[in-house]
Amino acid sequence: MDAFEKVFEAKLEAEEKIEPKDWMPEKYRKTLIRQISQHAHSEIVGMLPEGNWITRAPSLRRKVALLAKVQDEAGHGLYLYSAAETLGVERATLLDQLHEGKAKYSSIFNYPTVSWADIGAIGWLVDGAAIMNQVMLTRASYGPYARAMVRICKEESFHQRQGYEIMMTLSNGSEEQKAMAQDALDRWWWPSLMMFGPSDKESTHSAQSMAWKIKRKSNDDLRQQFVDVSVPQAEYLGLKIPDDKLKWNEERGHYDFGEIDWDEFWNVIKGNGPCNEERLAARVKAHEEGEWVRDAALAYAEKHSNKQKVEA
């Protein structure tokens, strides 16, 4: 181990943050770029399924809240791309990777939003699962990432409360509304559990990320924590979680739950989910159609700074 590496390891040991100018192992840098950019991509792809319902939100209050939420996600994308840029990679490059299908984003966004209740279920479960993953990232060893996550987590917990409140309104509403809420839970439950990634035995990146203190808890631990928190919340709504094996285990002090359909899990990751193509196509379309706008803004800025030089 050389001197640089010793300093790096000592900082990790002492829980000091690694900052952009600090020396870091190339693999640490690459892992962070991969993780932060995947996270950023998830935020902006995640705008699409919920964005679907902005024009159809059932009340003005809900419309405004949903718009604000989806806008928050765009902001999260921005902070995260900026955090990735501190590692020496440009946003444009990362976006190209997304558009070429080389970069991943959270599979949950490859599921369709088919009813208004999905907006509630997503806030409650998907933002809820995201928070569980992300709270530990506020303590990630890389400073800019950890700081971005602090900001993001605050907003995510607001999203979660808002989503749960939608579910609550539906559950206390008409028979139709209750059925709508149950149907959304039926469809979003399993994909939400999948958000924690492969099981610990299958996870390729987990161990190293834990050693580098980028990640603090294993996928399975987080998934268990999520189930434990969500079961009483579903009960309070009077909704049934679609898992026959779900049962309190006195001995473990946790809920036991059924096995995830790992075939489906890997299939959606490989691009065969219900909306993979649509999501990517929508991002590519926005990017391509925006090219002339971005080019013109650059051209104008250049022209303008030249003019100023001539005048001066």
Binding site: I44, A286, V293
Partner: peptide, 24 residues
């Protein structure tokens, strides 16, 4: 509101959504 998530750049997307939010 239709454009939210489909803007030509993230910053423009956010700004247009802001305008939509104000108007609503």
């Amino acid at each position: 509101g239709e454009l939210c998530g489909h803007g030509p750049a993230l910053e423009i997307d956010i700004a247009l959504t802001n305008i939509s939010l104000d108007l609503l």
